[in-house]
Every structure is written in C-alpha cells, then in structure tokens.
C-alpha cells in the first residue's frame, strides 16, 4: 500500500490549485499532531466523544491527501469511539507511526 496515493494527491492539487498545495500540507502537518494528542488526552480522560471526533477529523484529512493506511487506522479508531469502546490497545502508537510516514512523504511533495 503506498503511503500517499498519487492519483488522489494530484486531484487534490488540481482542486486547491498548485499554488495552495503547500498551504494545505503545512496546515495538515500542523494540525494532525494536535488531533493525535487530543485523542491521547481523550483516552486518558475517557472522553469518548472527543476521541471519536478527533479520529474522524484525522480520517477526513487522511482521505483528502490520499493516505490510505492512516485513513483506515483513523477510521477504525473513530468506529471504536462511536461504539463507546476505548480499549484501543497500541493502536494510537500505530496511528502515530503511520502519520510520521505520511508527514515525511508529504514534506517531499511540497512544490
């Protein structure tokens, strides 16, 4: 599975305009770590709603950039949140690692 799906990313570039792709990447690199740390906080506070919403937001962005692995992991965590199940095991660490890979790749895709 590619870290970033090229076709989706090209579509995104077309939509935002090539001039704005850097702005989008920077916004994601800035916001996504917040979402992951919010999920960690929510997990400790047993705040299912916040956990689910942040996972949802991260999933939404992952799909926008064409990051299938990150998207699938975030989606799984969102579903668990929706089902009031916060027994996530090591999934947050796995998610974080997936994000690091996506971040690395996206940094190289800035124009």
């Amino acid at each position: 599975m590619p870290v970033i799906d090229q076709a989706t990313f090209e579509e995104l570039k077309q939509m935002s305009g090539a001039d704005f792709i850097n702005e989008l990447i920077d916004a994601f690199l800035e916001e996504a770590p917040n979402m992951i740390s919010q999920m960690q906080v929510a997990l400790l506070a047993n705040d299912v709603e916040s956990f689910r919403r942040n996972a949802h937001s991260l999933k939404s962005n992952a799909l926008t950039f064409g990051a299938p692995e990150l998207g699938a992991l975030a989606k799984e965590l969102e579903s668990m949140g929706r089902e009031n199940n916060l027994a996530v095991g090591n999934r947050l660490e796995v998610l974080n690692e997936a994000f690091e890979r996506v971040a690395e790749e996206l940094k190289g895709m800035r124009v």
Binding site: S16, E31, S60
Partner: peptide, 16 residues
C-alpha cells in the same frame, strides 16, 4: 469547518 485543511481546501477551491 473545525478542520483547517478542509477550510483551506474549500475556501481556495471556491475562490478559484
């Protein structure tokens, strides 16, 4: 939208 990426994406697309 509470999500910055979504806001930028929609705003830039529509401004275009």
């Amino acid at each position: 939208d509470d999500n910055k990426v979504n806001r930028i994406l929609l705003a830039r697309g529509l401004e275009g």
